[in-house]
Write a protein that binds this DNA or RNA. Sequence first.
DNA 1: AAGCAGTTCAACCGCTTTGCC
DNA 2: GGGCAAAGCGGTTGAACTGCT
Length: 194
Amino acid sequence: MKKSSIQINVKGAWTAEEDKTLSEYIHLHGPKKWKSIATRSGLNRCGKSCRLRWLNYLRPNIKRGNFSEQEEDLILRLHKLLGNRWSLIAGRLPGRTDNEIKNYWNSHMSKRYNNVIKEVKNNNKITNMMNLNSSLPSPIMESTDQLGLGRRIEEKEEEEEDVKLMFDFSVEGTNGLEWVNRFLELDDDHHDYL
DNA sequence: AAGCAGTTCAACCGCTTTGCC
DNA sequence: GGGCAAAGCGGTTGAACTGCT
């Protein structure tokens, strides 16, 4: 009986056995021609799936686990600069994959980022209210201070300043233009590397 | 202990870009 | 320049996990 030439590709989570097969094949033949890797290695996976598994999990020097504060800071800045260009952002974080950064952003950082934005907006509202209050007669101002609002506004202003600093690329040092220049240099390095 | 909701992350999907003939 | 295949990319999905009631 003739065997069908149609191959059904496996989907879902990779097994340790599949990982081993793929790793061994790539170590021998290199990470090129994913379609042929998929067929010649004997894995019932599509080329795309093999490529993704290698790049996001099996490739050497993959850094796993929690992101450091520096990494988070870098992601935040790069995201502000580049938007959802995850592969470009990943290129600036050695050992991190675009998929990992994307997931981390969506699950951890986007919420915090949005809260910061919300906070800044609220601060602006409060500041505007205060400007209104300052033109009111003094007894009303006193009553707002009795509520501790004056102090809270000071704190909010400090926080707002922090947020401004966080996104200020004009300041010298690691947070400033030097960093952007390094970013552009790194981009050249990255292309050389590839 | 069970059920549910929310979160995380590996993997998939579909579209775009790149490279080759 | 056009067509095709391979590679790359970002968005989305869904299974596994976690925490709460």
